[in-house]
Design a protein around this nucleic acid. Structure first.
Length: 354
DNA sequence: ACCATTTGACCGGC
DNA sequence: GCCGGTCAAATGGT
């Protein structure tokens, strides 16, 4: 019967087992002298595993047998029995219908990405996932067509993440990207840091799950979100050992935010990018990305020399700024509990409510 | 040959 | 019937 389990179920079980194993390791860890650092990284791994498990559950619940039988495009996978195995199973057309419904239920969020222009040539839009274009449409009253992409591993790994890309009419150098569904294909991810954002208020205010991000093209970080859980995933911290955030508003004011780095810790890395409300102008929404611009700022915040890096982040203000255009993000690492521990709830910033 | 993109056709929701 | 989203055959690149 094991072979009849869906890919998602297997992934779910795998995540739960992983969480369990790390929890055991953590328990053993308490018997031997080790750094709080190590323990914290183990804790983060557990949180990550359970986060992912919940994510899988939420996308596929309820886990009924019929549900797993009707997994589209996976019937050809060796993990699945052939169609003939199920007499009276849905036909292809019904499968497609099922598919469309499933897709609609997937979490959805948006990003705005500014293209880099080097030597007069636009750099292609890139993130860390492999996408395959499957369509392009001219949209009514829109200047630019909309392109449709799906995960390259849709068939091989049953990853149903999709995205739509459309050039912004206001600024042709900006692309609006709508993502739907989280990746279950685990493309190139080694490190996961989970941040549970304050959620009670947003929920009571009818906040939906949309969070907007700016994704620095050169970075290897990516952010996925599900409801109010923000998961920042970092592939290779050696490339961004000590990023800080540069924030720039529409009126070109700058400020720098520290991100949170635990050195030599493969599990607990950095908050790479997210969107914030300015405490001074809560109606504004800002998008930040990693930046290495201000070495002085870095030195001050981290009390250590800032390593060189050519990574440059761009920050877009998503909403018109008000009188106070500069953020008041003068929190210290101590204040947010950084330093000894990788924070699971380090700040009071909230995802954008739309 | 294989894989990605293009593009007209098709389908479902409104 | 219109429109957005997806499919799938045709095409192109390696």
């Amino acid at each position: 019967m094991e072979s009849e389990k869906s890919w998602e179920q297997k992934a779910l079980v795998s995540e739960l087992i992983q969480g369990l194993e790390i929890a055991r390791k953590l328990k053993e860890d308490f018997n031997i002298p080790s750094s709080i650092h190590t323990r914290d990284s183990l804790l983060q791994s557990i949180l990550s595993s359970y986060n992912k498990a919940l994510l899988i559950l939420s996308q596929n619940a309820p886990f009924s047998k019929s549900e797993t039988m009707h997994q589209p495009t996976q019937t050809s996978s060796p993990q699945f029995p052939s169609k003939d195995h199920y007499e009276g199973a849905l036909n292809d057309h019904q499968e497609l219908k099922q598919n469309a419904k499933k897709r609609k239920k997937m979490p959805k969020w948006k990003e705005r990405v500014r293209v880099k222009i080097q030597n007069g040539v636009e750099e292609p839009l890139r993130d860390d996932y492999s996408w395959r274009k499957y369509g392009q449409k001219n949209i009514l009253n829109a200047k630019y067509p909309r392109s449709y992409y799906r995960c390259t591993f849709q068939k091989s790994k049953g990853c149903f993440a999709t995205k739509q890309v459309q050039r912004s009419e206001e600024d042709p150098n900006v692309f609006d990207i709508s993502y739907r569904g989280n990746h279950v294909c685990s493309q190139g991810k080694d490190v996961v840091l989970s941040l549970k954002l304050a959620d009670t208020e947003e929920k009571s205010q009818g906040c939906d799950s949309d969070i907007q991000f700016h994704h620095a093209q050169s970075s290897q970080e990516r952010v996925t979100n599900y409801t109010n859980t923000l998961i920042a995933e970092t592939d290779n911290m050696t490339q961004h050992p000590f990023p800080s955030f540069e924030c720039m508003t529409h009126d070109n004011h700058h400020t720098f935010l520290p991100s949170f780095v635990l050195e030599n810790d493969p599990f607990c890395s950095t908050i790479s990018q997210t969107s914030f409300f300015s405490p001074n102008s809560p109606e504004s929404n800002y998008l930040v990305s990693p930046s290495f611009h201000s070495h002085d700022e870095f030195d001050r915040v981290f009390d250590k020399p800032c390593p060189d890096s050519d990574a440059v982040g761009i920050v877009l203000a998503d909403a018109p700024t008000t009188n106070s255009s500069i953020f008041d993000f003068n929190f210290s690492l101590d204040a947010v509990g950084i330093g000894a521990n990788c924070p699971s709830r380090p700040w009071g910033f909230h995802p954008k409510c739309t």
